[in-house]
Simulated scan of single mutants.
Amino acid sequence: MDPIDAYIRVPRPSAVMVWTPEQTRLFLEEAGRHPLFALYRLITLRGLRRGEACGLRWKDIDLDTGAASISWQLVQLAGRIHEGKPKTDASMRTIALDAETVTILRGHQRRQREQQLAAGEMWKGTGFVFTQSDGDRLHPQHVSDQFLWLAYLAGLPPIRLHDLWHGAASLMLAAGVEIKVVQETLGHTSSAFTADTYTSVFPQVAMAAAEKTAALLLGEDEGHGTLRHLRA
């Protein structure tokens, strides 16, 4: 039996599963040696869907300001690739890019330009950030297949590529990112939907916020003096 077939047949206790931060870190370390590393990092940390990552174009990214506009996607229907807008108005969004991701994208861009020089007239100028070696569009299923292989090599519990998108929300919430920011980053229609979807993580975040709020009243004497002054 193919090792990947055996890997993905492992019983899943839940329809949606996400890795822990440590497991996610191990995956990114393994993916760091793969040509699609930047794509997997965007899904993992910035919450792009598979089709949005495959459909990302260089004209939609500003590496100087660290921002990317999500306005295009590649979807797979009956084995064929279709280009189009994201599925909802909320999915049309602009996301912030951290400094390390910008550096990784710049390196990816340099390697793509080297591929273009090597391909010469055979290069297909599609304008997409993530392409095949001749510049042609990526097949979304190839992205999923490579993800499973990398997860297998890293010795991690099997999850779907779409679960990595869910994991991005969990990571942001666990890091204390405001629910509204998580909603807008992932392209959810409402913050209520985001909170309902990630009920296993959101209570921990809400508790941490409550503790931080209460801690404001437990500061040093100087802080109490300031409060008394303001009340006066």
Rank of each mutant, 00 (worst) to 15 (best):
Y152V: 07
V129C: 13
E83H: 13
L48K: 02
R137W: 10
A208N: 13
A174Y: 02
G187F: 00
L42C: 01
F128M: 02
Q109A: 13
E22Y: 03
A31Q: 04
W72T: 13
F147A: 06
T44C: 15
D89I: 03
D136F: 00
E29Y: 10
L161Y: 00
Q204V: 07
S91P: 00
V75G: 06
A175E: 11
Y40C: 08
A214H: 03
Q141V: 11
L63N: 08
R113G: 04
L77E: 14
G51L: 09
G66P: 11
I4M: 06
G155I: 05
T103E: 15
E114N: 07
A154R: 04
A67F: 10
A31R: 04
S191H: 01
E184Q: 14
S91K: 01
T185H: 02
R93W: 00
G135H: 02
A38P: 14
I95C: 06
R12F: 07
Y198E: 05
L150R: 14
Q109W: 10
L56G: 08
F27H: 08
P158N: 08
S91V: 01
L77R: 15
P21C: 07
L217D: 14
T101K: 05
L39P: 03
T65P: 00
A53C: 06
E220V: 12
H229I: 10
F193Y: 12
I70C: 05
L26V: 02
R25P: 00
L148N: 12
Q112R: 11
Q204H: 14
S170A: 14
L63E: 06
G219W: 04
D196P: 09
L105R: 13
T24D: 06
D134N: 15
Y152T: 07
I159L: 03
D62H: 03
P203F: 00
G219H: 03
L156P: 12
V75I: 15
W149Y: 12
T94L: 09
L117N: 08
A15C: 02
M92E: 12
A206Y: 13
D89E: 13
